[in-house]
Design a protein around this nucleic acid. Structure first.
Lengths: 109, 109
DNA sequence: AACATTAATCGTATAATTGCAATAAACAAA
DNA sequence: TTTGTTTATTGCAATTATACGATTAATGTT
């Protein structure tokens, strides 16, 4: 069917999956790493940095923006994108809670 | 195209994306949380726990196994699945390095 | 051997994702 | 106003992901 049955999972599970899904493409990982490195960025830089076409980058930026992980300010004809630090911290808390589950007792087989 | 151009990204970026992708579905998040909680599990339990059909669960388990995050031991007619703690820790290290990027200086716009 | 139980695989339908050319939109500069 | 620059949107094709019925495979039970 290709459709995740989100209604049968908890809000927490769906939230983790949504965040993880946006990290599930190397272009978006690359964009985020670049934004962290540069501390300020216009989309044109990203198109040159990564080898993807401008509409493709724009689409990936849109998805990151939709989840609130980045924000963009219009500056003339270009747009300045950067990490939304508050939301990034919130996301990190959710993901860490999932990743940091106690591993010490689970090796059973 | 529906195909990620992995060759234009670093190994690290592709690795992060692969791990994230497997967490990008609430069913797999749910399976992993259940395995952590129970410390041992047969597939039948998961089919009852989660509301998905047996072939669907089996498919999700296969993907988790492919990345090495879980391992399964055959015990009679059933299979005991559990977290592969060593690989989980390796994955955690990779993901934490990505998530823990310094957020203090990036609020630029 | 015949049957039951459990999980994996196959086949297939449907939906989501990815990528980009073409175009539109917004703004600056001449 | 016309032209150039930059980003967003549209439309489409190709690929991947999700889900499950039907079947197979493997093992245990009688």
């Amino acid at each position: 069917m290709g459709l995740a049955k989100t209604e049968m999972f908890t809000d927490e599970q769906n939230e983790i999956a949504l965040f993880a899904k946006v990290f599930g493409h190397p272009a978006r990982v690359s964009i985020l790493q670049h934004l962290f490195k540069i501390n300020a960025c216009v989309c044109g830089d990203l198109v040159n940095e990564i080898g993807l076409a401008q509409p493709t980058i724009s689409q990936h930026l849109k998805e990151l923006k939709l989840l609130g992980l980045i924000k963009g300010n219009v500056e003339g004809t270009s747009v300045c994108y950067c990490i939304d630090t508050a939301n990034w911290s919130k996301m990190k808390r959710v993901m860490l809670q999932f990743l940091d589950q106690d591993v010490s007792k689970t090796d059973c087989c």
